[in-house]
Nucleic acid binder design. Sequence first.
DNA 1: TCACAATAATCGTTATAACGAATATAATTC
DNA 2: GAATTATATTCGTTATAACGATTATTGTGA
Lengths: 156, 156
Amino acid sequence: MNASIQAEIKQGKPFESLEQEAFLALLWTADRLQWRLTEALKPQGLSPTQYNALRILRGAGKQGLACSEIAERMITRDPDITRLMDRLGRMGLVHRGRGDEDRRIVVAKITPKGADLLKQLDPVIRQFLHSLLGHMGEKKLNSLLDLLDKAATSAS
Amino acid sequence: MNASIQAEIKQGKPFESLEQEAFLALLWTADRLQWRLTEALKPQGLSPTQYNALRILRGAGKQGLACSEIAERMITRDPDITRLMDRLGRMGLVHRGRGDEDRRIVVAKITPKGADLLKQLDPVIRQFLHSLLGHMGEKKLNSLLDLLDKAATSAS
DNA sequence: TCACAATAATCGTTATAACGAATATAATTC
DNA sequence: GAATTATATTCGTTATAACGATTATTGTGA
């Protein structure tokens, strides 16, 4: 069982514990999936982090989002939002302004150019995800979600 | 179902597809687990990547391993093994030499100091993994492994 | 209201990752 | 056996991540 992951992580010895095996399998699988996403986004010149941030901003709509709120919603925790927004700003995909009520806050919004880019990417990503995970079927994907949720409980 | 992951990745909208939801949950969970590992290794001054490489070299034993073989066994694919070994070498945890038969090859071996460090870490990591994932029980961990294996098939 | 703590973001610096090009050696082909 | 191709690693460079310290603004308690 689980022969292929064990084969890929060519360990000389078997795993010391089931917990360790599951831990390694999770990180390994995530790394491979992210690698595929990186490849899929490369033609557009976006990194997964940048893509994730853009999607978050699209979800926030016209009112935009504070940098700290973007950080909370990112997949990978605690990136440097300031410089991430700097880069997206230089590409013309987002713009920023100070908050009116609380002048400490910087609110970022997606630009029309950024929204267009995402719209163009939507079918590509949908297709990409389907080709990666579609073969698992609804039942197994739901089980996976359930188990991932449990695996994350002690870690978040 | 899966309320907590969905809550944590505070999306304004629900997920577009089950595939997308599973993909995000996998990356998100892996990021959190890796973050915890990073914290656990910090007192020893090791990054997860360095720890992973050291373990691989311990598994290889006295004959050591070629850089290219280390790369194949790493959890995160394609790091710059040369410079990774440079750093571990500077710390005195590994040493390197050219292969005798094939002089293109550089063979890395773990040093006694490196082995000692790992031995010291072993109980810490075992405890760490148990506290993270032990609550899931054998059955669920096996299911998770099985599903991760399936999720990885199209990505590797 | 004034000092003090809390929060939001920025920036300086160092370390690491990512991408290619370059180097050295080995294998293969004609 | 000389030229070519493949392999293993290194290295130069740029971009990004990680860690702390800093600045600006707001909230709070004496």
